[in-house]
Design a protein around this nucleic acid. Structure first.
Length: 342
DNA sequence: GTCGTGACGGTTGAT
DNA sequence: ACATCAACCGTCACG
């Protein structure tokens, strides 16, 4: 609520956080960077004043997915009963009026209309039959609608927008092209890619915005910059930044000492993340930060950071997410490679 | 002392 | 406009 500027709360370590909201990207990145420098999680926790549970989670996620971004918050799962699916169901029903819902389900899978991740349940199919199709002859307005075939769920998908971001900073207003949504597990990756025919996974560009896109953090965009005395701050900053400062200024002091050269450079742009100021998202470009993904060796540079950051492995995560860290590795990551470079 | 985990109270965004 | 719901968040405390 009052969240706008919300003051955050202070955790046991003295760090500031906003309950319910993700840590600013700047901190998330810093966590990863420090870890890459060989600093132990417990020390990172203390230095950044972020609970170790959180450090653990962020690091685990990064190791697994290559993304430092928080997951997509809010929204609903994409509907599986896309117009295209409904249409197929109707076709099957018309072709064989006596067909059972489970048979339809099997056909949807067999015909590639759906995959195991997005195929409607038998009960959903029954409902569709009853409600949307009912009388076979009736055309349901569905077909008329162009509705992009499978992609449809893309659009629907909150989660996945590619945020990519418009460089300009426009937040995510417009979803870029389709970069597919793979974001959560729902549509399986395969599906999507098949559908779209994309090579998304391999193509960094495509990927870029994918996965988590940026969930929005408008509120925080300003986010903090811990180690810095507000450099530019003072002057011209807009309120939001300032406020954010307020919200988050945590131990600046130590930090700086700690993080040496890290690319981060803290500097100002710190929060690159979501736009340091006032909401401009595009700011990612930060300057030089670079993260190298350990497992893969992939290096992420800031400029691309956002892309890099945002994704890496296809999201199967959600699915497997339960146990996040499979310690074993991520083969998938390699795919990512291209990411960083640019 | 570390670190993984899950409950908890919270926010968000689609429906 | 409002309420639900389901996803995610970070903290905390336990083991």
């Amino acid at each position: 609520m009052q969240m706008d500027q919300t003051y955050g709360e202070v955790n046991q370590l003295g760090g500031v956080f906003v309950n319910g909201r993700p840590l600013p990207n700047a901190i998330r990145i810093r966590i990863v960077e420090l870890a890459q420098l060989g600093i132990r999680p417990c020390d990172i926790s203390r230095q950044l004043r972020v609970s170790h549970g959180c450090v653990s989670k962020i690091l685990a996620r990064y190791n697994e997915t290559g993304s430092i971004l928080p997951g997509a918050i809010g929204g609903s799962k994409p509907r599986v009963t896309t117009p295209n699916v409904v249409k197929s169901i109707r076709d099957y029903k018309q072709g064989d009026p006596g067909i059972f819902a489970w048979e339809i389900r099997d056909r949807l899978l067999a015909d590639g209309v759906c995959d195991k991740y997005n195929v409607p349940s038998v009960s959903s199919i029954s409902r569709i039959l009853r409600n949307k199709i009912g009388n076979l002859s009736q055309p349901s307005h569905y077909d008329s609608k162009p509705s992009p075939p499978q992609i449809s769920y893309n659009p629907v998908y909150p989660y996945s927008y590619p945020s990519a971001m418009s460089p300009t900073g426009s937040k995510l207003g417009s979803p870029p092209a389709v970069s597919v949504s793979l974001s959560r597990a729902w549509p399986s990756v395969h599906t999507v890619s098949n559908i779209l025919g994309i090579r998304a996974f391999m193509d960094p560009a495509a990927i870029a915005g994918t996965e988590n896109y940026q969930p929005k953090m408008e509120d925080w965009t300003g986010v903090n910059r811990p180690s810095f005395p507000s450099v530019h701050g003072v002057n011209g900053i807009d309120k939001s930044s300032i406020e954010s400062d307020i919200k988050y200024s945590q131990g600046s002091s130590n930090l700086s000492g700690y993080v040496p050269a890290c690319a981060y450079s803290a500097t100002n742009h710190q929060y690159g993340v979501y736009g340091g100021h006032a909401g401009n998202y595009g700011h990612w470009q930060s300057q030089g930060a670079s993260l190298t993904h350990p497992n893969t060796g992939t290096m992420i540079q800031s400029p691309n950071l956002h892309s890099a950051i945002s994704f890496k492995n296809p999201p199967r995560e959600a699915v497997e997410r339960k146990s996040p860290l499979s310690k074993q590795q991520h083969e998938g990551l390699s795919a990512v490679h291209g990411l960083s470079e640019s």
